[in-house]
């Protein structure tokens, strides 16, 4: 099964249908999403590798249990990201821990993409501005970090973020704009 590429070209929705008739096909869904979700979960919070494994395992079990609830009018990826997000938040709550600040490597990535969206590339060539933006990102509120991770690291659309975080599209837009605004304010404060 590991080397069976028959399912590589199948859409997520087709894989769900196959899994419902043959549970062994679930491995193909997991193989497709494991790296993406592992990266996402690690970006969301300060999990150790073992903790992230547990979150992912629970995510896959919950997804499997609820496969019949999956509605084809949604993107499967948004649906499974939502489950992963909820599992990560639940795990953090159980561990009584706050989400971490984003690793500096990822801050750089967010910064570059954010800078592109803000039309600030030319300004960010200036090292001083880059450092200011990095510091500002570290101080950003958790709710803003969630949308920034989804928008600028996972590169999800507003609609997808809306479905993952269960917030209206307009609210997602507002959160992203506020995150940008808060970044500007923090930069100007520095």
């Amino acid at each position: 099964m590991q080397n069976d590429h028959t399912y590589d070209d199948k859409t997520d929705e087709e894989l769900v249908a196959h899994t419902l008739s043959d549970p062994n096909r679930y491995e193909y869904i997991m193989a497709r999403y494991e790296p993406k979700l592992m990266r996402y979960v690690l970006r969301l919070a300060a999990f150790s590798k073992e903790e992230a494994d547990d979150v992912l395992q629970e995510t896959f079990i919950k997804t499997y249990q609820n496969l019949n609830e999956y509605d084809r009018s949604f993107k499967f990826s948004s649906w499974i990201y939502r489950i992963a997000h909820n599992e990560a938040v639940n795990a953090l709550r159980k561990m009584n821990r706050l989400p971490r600040t984003i690793e500096s490597k990822e801050q750089e990535l967010i910064m570059e993409r954010l800078a592109g969206s803000l039309d600030l590339e030319h300004e960010l060539d200036n090292k001083l501005h880059r450092e200011q933006l990095l510091k500002a990102l570290e101080k950003l509120d958790g709710k803003y970090r969630d949308v920034l991770v989804l928008k600028f690291l996972e590169e999800k659309s507003y609609e997808e973020i809306s479905d993952i975080l269960k917030k209206p599209v307009g609210t997602v837009g507002t959160l992203i704009n506020r995150a940008r605004k808060q970044l500007f304010e923090k930069i100007n404060h520095e």
């Binding site: 491995e27 395992q57 896959f60 079990i61 499997y64 609820n66 496969l67």
Partner: peptide, 16 residues
């Protein structure tokens, strides 16, 4: 992770 999930599904009799 995948192996463990499939094992748990079988052992615990988890069904959709």
């Amino acid at each position: 992770i995948r192996e463990n999930v499939l094992k748990q599904i079988k052992e615990r009799g988890i069904e959709p």
